[in-house]
């Protein structure tokens, strides 16, 4: 089997795919985001509570490939108890790290770096970034609402 591909799926992705973090529905959550890719049908809902500018709870549910599921799982896991600004920073770094057009080196923890290999698989890049992009939009709205 292709070594590069195995590297992409390495333990982080397989592990999160098999045992995703807080994989449950919470219909009455304060905020429900939908990350949907009509091209492939991947669809995840992320349920969030935000109190005083801090993400206090996060869980997710839905269906998608191993990469999109694992990347959403990693996102959700790292959001909990983060202030919105910190969460925004995290999303920015992640999207920069996975962006094949970005030359800037980004150092992140191994858990995130696992997804950098999607740069070599252009067809799968969106799987890694789907939920992160949706989250970026949501967090932006949060900060705007806070300022108003």
């Amino acid at each position: 089997m292709n070594e590069q591909l195995k590297a992409l799926y390495k333990t982080v992705i397989l592990e999160h795919n098999a045992r995703p973090f807080h994989f449950e529905k919470k219909e009455d959550a304060g905020h429900v985001l939908e990350a949907y890719n009509p091209l492939c049908g991947d669809r995840f809902q992320v349920f969030l509570e935000v109190k005083n500018g801090v993400v206090t709870e996060a869980c997710f549910h839905g269906y998608g490939c191993a990469i999109s599921k694992a990347s959403t799982s990693v996102l959700v896991k790292n959001l909990e108890n983060q202030p919105v600004e910190k969460a925004q920073e995290l999303c920015r770094s992640f999207l920069k790290m996975t962006n094949p057009d970005s030359q800037e080196p980004v150092e992140m923890a191994e858990e995130f770096m696992a997804f950098s290999a999607t740069r070599d698989f252009p067809g799968r890049l969106k799987c890694a970034t789907l939920s992160w992009e949706e989250m970026t939009l949501f967090l932006e709205k949060q900060t705007v609402e806070n300022e108003n």
């Binding site: 991947d42 998608g64 490939c65 990469i67 698989f121 799968r124």
Partner: peptide
Amino acid sequence: VHPHDVATF
């Protein structure tokens, strides 16, 4: 195994 993972491999 999701079909997209199958197709990628």
